[in-house]
Design a protein around this nucleic acid. Structure first.
Lengths: 214, 214
DNA sequence: CACAGGATCAGCCAAATGGGGGATACCCAT
DNA sequence: ATGGGTATCCCCCATTTGGCTGATCCTGTG
């Protein structure tokens, strides 16, 4: 119990990274084993340094947090993950949890909560941010009879992004060298998955939920 | 020169706030005078504690950073502001600079840069994040012959917001008790001001630039 | 192998959109 | 008071969109 908890911080924002580092390294019993700036670096460092806990941001350049967690988890099952991010959309949450995160915290948690969370995860527990817990419950109960939580496909994302740039179906078709019928099909599927009914709302939802890069 | 620089941190994210605090308070010659969670608190604390520098996040619940800076600046001209944010859109930049910020940094700056920036602002200099500097130059040169930076009107914002919720022109008209012809006119004006040509792109641009609350 | 899911294509049709005109009324500032 | 900006209203019309139904091909997985 009185063993030192070794922590790896993975976040692409230097300020947050170093801030966390400064904050956590002052906590008795905590040791910051390293700081990674992206998913790739997080993976390399995790496997090399074997920290007890990885504090992982989800959205990072190159390999993202979820991908990094999957890779690390494949090669080392003892490392536990705490997702610490500003994104609270469903896609990320379920992906993160499926990828093996032990905790999902939003960046509005207090210092105390974070420290407590690290201790709990270290001792084998799991925990979710209150907001996240509710989303999970909502999803489990409401999502039983329904479907989705399934991401948009690559193609759909591609098309959604072009929609956000003001492209018409015809323009998208030309751009992707497919027929505009196909584009319409994809667009309709996007609407279904996002539960919206026109492109403006689709783009708005995608941007707000972080599905599309802001 | 060897005087202590007193800093007030204003950011709505506890982790960032306390991370910055932990980080900066370890720097010799720096002292964290306080931490504010929103614009209102920042204003109160700034006027009470009279820090040398306020590290200010822009997007905060309630009173935002720009508003807070304006209020503080009105009552105390000696306090200098460093905007430290993740938003790099034009609206924010110019608003922030107009409100009297001495520096505009994005959260991907390194610890060293931030510390250096604080020192420079303390000694009376101003500085901008490299990305921001370019935006400014682009704007000054490109914006000479053109116009805009003038926001949308209240009415237009209202309508834009409804568009983002998937409302059709007819629905907007019903919602605002005006004719759909009028809505069309407003929508067209929005397109002109935002330099876009359909609602999806308008919504995307508005969200990305922070014109619409994300 | 069979089946699910993704990507592709097709036709039909009502509804909405966006651009082109132009118009009135109000308020505020020069 | 003349003008600019805002909000409101109107017509016309081509283009686009979105919903519906249905189909083929490929790939991965049980």
């Amino acid at each position: 119990m009185s063993q030192t908890i070794r922590i790896l911080i993975a976040d692409d924002h230097p300020v947050i990274r170093e801030g966390l580092s400064a904050m956590l390294s002052r906590v008795p019993g905590f040791e910051v084993a390293g700081e990674a700036r992206d998913g790739k670096e997080a993976m390399d460092m995790a496997l090399r340094l074997k920290p007890d806990i990885v504090l992982m941001d989800l959205r990072m350049p190159g390999m993202d947090g979820v991908e990094a967690m999957r890779m690390i988890h494949l090669q080392c099952e003892t490392i536990r993950f705490i997702i610490l991010t500003v994104y609270d959309n469903d896609e990320y949450i379920f992906e993160g949890i499926r990828a093996g995160a032990s905790a999902y915290l939003l960046k509005d948690v207090s210092r105390e909560t974070l420290i407590q969370a690290i201790r709990e995860v270290y001792s084998g527990q799991s925990l979710l941010h209150p907001q996240i817990t509710r989303k999970l419950l909502d999803h489990v109960s409401g999502g039983a009879g329904k479907e989705q939580n399934s991401l948009l496909t690559e193609r759909e994302l591609e098309i959604l992004q072009m929609m956000a740039s003001g492209a018409s179906n015809k323009e998208i078709a030309r751009g992707l060298s497919i027929s505009s019928h196909t584009v319409k099909t994809h667009v309709s599927n996007i609407y279904q998955k996002l539960e919206v009914s026109d492109r403006a709302e689709a783009v708005a939802k995608a941007l707000r939920e972080g599905i599309l890069r802001g």
